[in-house]
Amino acid sequence: MSRLNKIIDAFEEGVIATILALMTLVTFWQVVMRYGFNTGWGGALQFTRVLFAWLILFGMSYGLKIGAHLGVDAFIRLFPKPVFRAFGLLGALLTLLYAALLFDADWFGWLLGLDNRGSSGGAFDYVARYYKLPIGMEDLKFPEWYQEMFGVKERVPRWWGYVILPVGLVLLGFRSLQMCWLIITGQRDTMIAAHEAEELVEENKDVLKD
């Protein structure tokens, strides 16, 4: 489990760093080309939008890992610590349920004995449908040399941009399970960071005196 956690940590951090670097480089290049040479890459805006969406969906799970998700716990802090931890565990379980439902909701309908009624199923099925359909991005195109070398169509397949949906939800589900374990074993009380401001004030209360 520890080895798997390290692999996922490295994967998340590597992808997030790469996305941030690419967004910065592409945006900087566009500014230089647009204002310096009155030209630019027509697909830059859509490219950075896709990267931003990837950053958000990777950030869901990474935020759980580093305790960066904010929450309001003023009410549940009034309860005894075991009850407070129970609320924290409930939050982690609900986050796991949220990830599972968005990944594929068919199992939930089957569990409750409900008909599908034309439901798309979830993120996995959504990406799988785009994988089968020859639909490309509006502005993102392959270079001509790439098209000739691999015999692909002009536009980048749309499912390339959407594949982060099931991947991000799987990572979120994994982190939710991890939070459940940490709360059950007493290593954490909750998965949110609600008292960051109070801790910062406490740490820096003597700064002005100096």
Rank of each mutant, 00 (worst) to 15 (best):
D189R: 05
N5S: 09
R3N: 12
L102P: 07
F142W: 10
Y131N: 04
K153I: 12
V152N: 05
L177S: 01
A74N: 15
G36Y: 02
D9E: 12
A17Q: 07
K205S: 07
V167Y: 11
M179E: 07
G151Y: 02
Y62W: 11
E198A: 12
E199Q: 15
E202M: 14
E154I: 01
L97C: 09
M179G: 04
L93I: 09
Q178I: 06
V163D: 08
N38K: 13
L172K: 06
H69I: 00
M1F: 15
T24V: 10
M60R: 03
C180F: 00
V83F: 13
L112Q: 09
L177G: 03
L114Q: 05
F103K: 03
E12M: 12
I66L: 08
R3C: 08
E196I: 06
M191I: 04
A197H: 11
P166T: 09
R49V: 14
A86H: 03
H195T: 11
G136W: 09
Y130C: 02
K6V: 06
G63K: 00
F150V: 03
W145S: 10
L171Y: 02
N38W: 15
L177N: 00
G36S: 00
N204Y: 12
I76A: 14
L64I: 07
A99M: 02
N5K: 12
Y35E: 08
V15A: 11
G113Q: 15
P134L: 02
L96W: 00
V15P: 03
E144F: 03
T39I: 01
E198T: 05
G42M: 04
M137D: 07
P166K: 08
L200G: 04
G71H: 03
A53I: 07
W159R: 06
M179K: 12
T39H: 11
G122D: 01
I184V: 13
N38S: 15
G71I: 02
R155S: 08
G71K: 08
R117C: 07
G91E: 05
A21W: 06
W110M: 06
V207H: 14
Y162V: 04
F87M: 03
V31T: 01
Y98F: 10
I19Q: 08
G113L: 15
S2N: 08
K81I: 10
Y62K: 10
M137C: 12
L102M: 12
G118L: 07
I76V: 15
F84L: 11
A68V: 02
V26H: 10
P143G: 01
L45G: 05
Q147W: 01
M179P: 03
F11C: 03
M191V: 06
G118Q: 09
P134E: 00
E154K: 02
V201Y: 03
F58Y: 11
G59A: 15
D106V: 04
W145F: 13
L20E: 00
A99R: 00
A17S: 12
G42A: 02
E144C: 01
W159K: 10
A86R: 05
Q187R: 13
K81S: 14
A10T: 09
D106A: 11
F75D: 02
L64Q: 05
H195K: 13
W41E: 04
T27G: 06
T27R: 11
A92K: 04
N5M: 06
G91F: 06
L55D: 10
W160H: 15
I19N: 09
E138V: 13
V72W: 13
G88E: 00
L4P: 02
G173I: 02
L22E: 04
N38G: 11
A10R: 12
Y130N: 07
F124V: 10
